[in-house]
């Protein structure tokens, strides 16, 4: 179903439809993430991917045209490149462990320690929260700085525009 959504999205020229479809896609992705036991990630994806980014895209569409122009040449080169990349990646999966293999390296390293000692050391039963806020608190601080910088960038870009349009009047 997700693949169908993305396929329609690729074909569609009406940008409004593209934005709505990308929101649908985000909700589907959130559902898949719940099925994969990643409840925290699914909640964030539903709120941020389907909510905030849709609002941002609609806001940008309000300021731009909503139809995509047709272009002349057929996109054979990008298509070929995408297919080749996909083929190489599929070849690469043959070196990866099978889905849900308990012996896979991902389950052998630090994860077990977090699951066993995390609640005792931090007192938080949700291990994702414990790692995010306690063990990797500095990471989260860095992330906030990234978001802050992006916010400053957006304000700087859009404020110059408002000043100029006031100057025109």
């Amino acid at each position: 179903m997700m693949l169908v959504t993305v396929a329609v999205l690729t074909r569609s020229r009406n940008l409004f439809a593209v934005v709505v479809l990308s929101s649908v896609y985000s909700f589907l992705m959130a559902t898949v993430l719940v099925a994969l036991d990643a409840v925290d990630v699914a909640m964030t994806e539903a709120a941020v991917g389907a909510g905030v980014s849709t609002v941002l895209l609609l806001g940008a569409l309000h300021l731009c045209r909503t139809e995509e122009a047709k272009h002349a040449q057929a996109p054979w080169l990008p298509l070929a490149m995408a297919v080749v990349t996909g083929g190489v990646l599929v070849y690469g999966t043959y070196g990866l462990p099978a889905f849900s293999d308990p012996q896979a390296p991902i389950h052998q390293h630090v994860a077990a320690r977090y699951l066993n000692d995390g609640p005792k050391e931090t007192g938080v039963p949700n291990v994702v929260t414990a790692v995010l806020a306690s063990y990797r608190g500095y990471d989260t601080l860095g992330e906030t700085i990234v978001v802050f910088t992006a916010g400053i960038g957006v304000v700087a870009l859009l404020r110059r525009r408002r000043q100029r349009s006031e100057g025109d009047r």
Partner: peptide, 15 residues
Amino acid sequence: PLPHVLILTAIVVGI
């Protein structure tokens, strides 16, 4: 839980 933590950060940076 570790991939979940990484991806939470990735979602926020993505937005």
